[in-house]
Write a protein that binds this DNA or RNA. Structure first.
Lengths: 208, 208
DNA sequence: TAGACTTGTTTAAGTTTTTAACAATCTTTT
DNA sequence: AAAAGATTGTTAAAAACTTAAACAAGTCTA
């Protein structure tokens, strides 16, 4: 169980609820019951009600859930209504694509800076965010206090940067590197995205 | 439990074992005990032995595991020794970055083709793989029989492409889109990578 | 050959996750 | 305004999964 007392399975389902509710809204619907939603999402109605029950009471007997309302409540639960400052480290192929591709504002974050070691990148803008030299990281963080960092650098560089960022007050990482942050820093929140691992898992499943 | 009878938790740990063993090899070590490995990986020795025991006997009493051997056995389990053909759909920012960034050969796949709707991309090469027009997908698949597809296209386009690919014999997806493949196609292997969901989860954890 | 070590494996414990059930209460219909 | 129908929040039970403990059997090292 988490520090918050809510299990990870529940937390991991929240973004999916949020997405499905967004679609229902797009379809012009205004209300939905746990049973109907369960059919759409391929869950049980019971599980949906129990998941939501972790956070409060958002429905009404005999009626169901107001879609608009429920979605905005989930947004609040996820913290999307109070975006936090984030920086991105490593503006190579991947880092640049991430910066272009992800709508940070819709996911609870402001991207306020990007950093790289490569002089030739410095000054370039991606989505109105400037790329800065990694040597200015300390100063920038002390001024802007980013709460999260997106790590798009090789494993070798990651440990040092992590130590530095954590000292500067960064509390959460979206980690694309193969460095095991959680191992050295158990008090920091980490979401790992390891393409390679996912591919190997897929390979396993296709081989057996 | 999986079709294979091995739980997902175990399967998901395999790539990590594989990585750690690679590092040990780099360090010049040749043998390791489950206890030593458990300390490095922050697991229990018991769990490591039990995980490996799902697949066979790779160690020796009184000695431990031969690192080289164990790694290559895990590679076999993951199917890395028999790479499967894969194609990538959608060569936008993300797709292009993935193609550049991921070493498919090391993860059990051959990337044999990339597809997009955009005429201006057609003919370009990424890592010696040509970008083709999506209209040639059918023909290409019938000739080359790809087993997996990496989906880097928007949700809206995904359903149709998925149906098409599955009809053409594709059995597994690395899915970056928000389309819920598993919902419509329960008999296909899917690894989802949803940056947005990961960010929202991180947002939740940083907000509570 | 003896003592130390470490595996594979079984068994048990613990935890998490899911499902089922139902009283309470709201909505809708007549 | 009352009755019938619907659906929630919540509790309790069941099921599934995951981890940990323990130890006989076998191997290494000195």
């Amino acid at each position: 169980m988490n520090p918050t007392g809510i299990s990870n399975s529940v937390i991991n389902r929240l973004p999916r609820y949020y997405r499905f509710l967004g679609e229902l809204k797009k379809e012009g619907l205004t209300r939905i019951s746990s049973r109907e939603l369960s059919e759409r999402m391929n869950l049980t109605a019971s599980q949906i009600r129990q998941d939501l029950n972790c956070f409060g009471e958002f429905g009404q007997q005999g009626y169901g859930y107001n879609i608009e309302l429920l979605q905005s409540e989930i947004a609040k639960i996820l913290g999307l209504d109070k975006p936090q400052n984030a920086i991105l480290i490593g503006v190579g192929n991947l880092g640049k694509a991430i910066a272009h591709y992800i709508n940070f504002e819709a996911k609870g974050f402001h991207l306020i800076g990007m950093f790289d070691t490569k002089e030739s990148l410095v000054g370039q803008m991606v989505r109105n965010v400037p790329i800065r030299h990694i040597s200015t990281l300390d100063e920038f963080c002390r001024e802007n206090m980013p709460r999260a960092a997106i790590l798009c650098i090789p494993k070798e560089a990651s440990k040092e940067i992590c130590d530095q960022l954590i000292k500067l007050g960064v509390k959460g990482f979206l980690n694309f590197s193969h460095y095991d942050i959680a191992l050295d820093h158990p008090n920091v929140e980490v979401e790992n995205i390891h393409f390679g691992d996912s591919l190997m898992t897929l390979s396993y499943k296709l081989s057996n």
